[in-house]
Write a protein that binds this DNA or RNA. Structure first.
Length: 426
RNA sequence: GUGGCUGUAGCUCAGGCGGUUAGAGCGCCAGGUUGUGGCCCUGGAGGCCGGGGGUUCAAGUCCCCUCAGCCACCCCA
């Protein structure tokens, strides 16, 4: 059916977009406080950008990208994540040329992955992401995590868990990889098929297996923490110290390994139970080799991506009600064609003065117009009938309390602009 | 991509073992009130019972296919 939206996509109706706008306004405010500036990039990029950065053999690149050839024969891909485009922009717009570090964020970027949908997993979703390029100071890692934490906290959420780990630099990773191979090689017969494949291809992924049968071998596996070089170890302990200072309560999770190839060093996830199996609302980490991979001079970076739909899902399931829409200031209620003709002009005048005002266009009865005003909900009903018309006045009714009084039109406009409710005389 | 559950009014849902004009609550519209909303009462509109095919005298109900949502795996935000 052509009126059905494509699988795994969502429509956003006005009632819902209010919540998006609220979340977005909080994100903008937090970014402002932390000194990050917004970027916007095309929704599609050269396919090669993602192949190179995310990694040729990751699930996302292998089977989840929306890739197409344009009419000029270029292979383009709807972005499946935000960090690579941000890194591309960093290079293309030469953000490295300014005083470092480059602190940027993106808000509600559409992200596309061809996946099997379920709640919290869509083919098009939206992310809020923050990236910092140019510094390897662990204080920046801490800042990034704290920013995400503050943002979620500002929305009134709790029950969030921050998991962190260090995947080490390229150097410590090779040693660790061998240690993992050695540990698992004796148990391969008892482990799942995927794990046997991972053992050969990428032993780090072994830690990611969630099968019960593999769990005991993972539990006893060597921890990356024991295989970090001195620099990585120092960075990681400094990060944890900073997180303590920043009031971020985090959990060391040595099995935490992220799925994109560009991650190095710090990795972290923020999860919430309300999400079920897709429990990650925010994920990120360091990607010190990414910029170099894309052909730039080596430049470290840290960042995260945060799923807006998942966030909204948590808010809904936890019954955290963000501030609702501002009620309408005034709803014009008129009786008769003559009053209606006057109402059009008055409505315009109110709006020009900054008052949120509306009127009936459905030819409703007087009673129904008043009910409309109530349900909107509007703060005041402005009643315009024959009496008011003759006297050049209008009746201002406070819908919450029920008090009303009839005043001159100029006074009514002034009253609505000023805000305070009208007098109590009935 | 694999396995499972579910699709009935705008929303949340009820419809015994196939059987007459498919129901409720909320919402919407009108009236009860010649110029007063909310609460209450009365009435009304609104359904290709997700779509297609099949079995049957007869299908919302049974069978097959398909689409969509959900749950788990996988992966991730």
């Amino acid at each position: 059916m052509i009126t059905n939206r494509p699988r795994g996509t969502l429509d956003i109706v006005p009632e819902e977009s209010v919540r998006w706008q609220y979340v977005e306004s909080v994100a903008r405010e937090i970014c402002r406080r932390y000194g990050y500036g917004e970027i916007r990039t095309p929704v599609f990029e050269h396919t090669e950008l993602f192949r190179r950065s995310v990694g040729e053999f990751t699930d996302v690149v292998e089977k989840e990208m929306y890739t197409f050839d344009d009419r000029g024969g270029r292979s383009l891909t709807l972005r499946p994540e935000g960090t690579a485009p941000a890194a591309r922009l960093y290079l293309e717009e030469r953000l490295y040329a300014g005083a470092g570090p480059a602190k940027i964020y993106y808000l509600s970027w559409p992200i596309f992955r061809y996946e099997r949908p379920q709640a919290g997993r869509l083919r098009q979703h939206h992310q809020f992401g923050v990236e910092c390029f140019g510094s390897h100071d662990p204080a920046v890692d801490a800042e990034i995590i704290a920013l995400a934490w503050d943002f979620l906290g500002a929305l009134g959420l709790d029950g969030l868990v921050v998991g962190i780990n260090s995947m080490g630099c390229a150097g410590c990773r090779t040693g660790y990889r061998e240690a993992l191979r050695a540990h698992f090689s004796g148990h391969l017969e008892e482990m799942c098929e995927d794990c046997r494949r991972r053992h050969a291809q990428n032993p780090l992924r072994l830690l990611d297996c969630k099968r019960e049968s593999c769990a005991p071998f993972i539990a006893t596996a060597p921890a990356i923490a024991d295989h970090l070089c001195e620099d990585c170890r120092a960075d990681f302990s400094l990060l944890r110290e900073y997180l303590g200072v920043l009031g971020v309560d985090c959990r060391l999770d040595s099995s935490l390994v992220r799925g994109f190839d560009y991650y190095t060093g710090t990795v972290f996830e923020i999860t919430h139970d309300a999400l079920g199996a897709q429990d990650v609302v925010c994920g990120g980490g360091r990607y010190d080799g990414l910029v170099e991979t894309l052909g730039g001079d080596p430049s470290p970076g840290v960042g995260f991506g945060l799923g807006i739909e998942r966030l909204l899902l948590i808010l809904e399931r936890e019954d955290v009600r963000p501030p609702g829409p501002d009620p309408l200031d005034a709803y014009l209620v008129c009786m008769g064609a003559e009053a209606r003709r006057h109402a059009v002009g008055l409505l315009h005048r109110l709006r020009a003065a900054g008052v949120a005002a509306d009127m009936d266009y459905m030819d409703r009865s007087f009673r129904a117009q008043l009910r409309r005003a109530d349900r909107y909900p509007a703060r005041f009903a402005l009643i315009l009938g024959e009496e008011e018309l003759a006297a050049g006045t209008i009746t201002v009714k406070d819908l919450a309390g029920g008090a009303q009084r009839t005043v001159g039109v100029d006074e009514a406009v002034a009253l609505l602009c000023a805000g305070p409710p009208p007098g109590e005389d009935e």
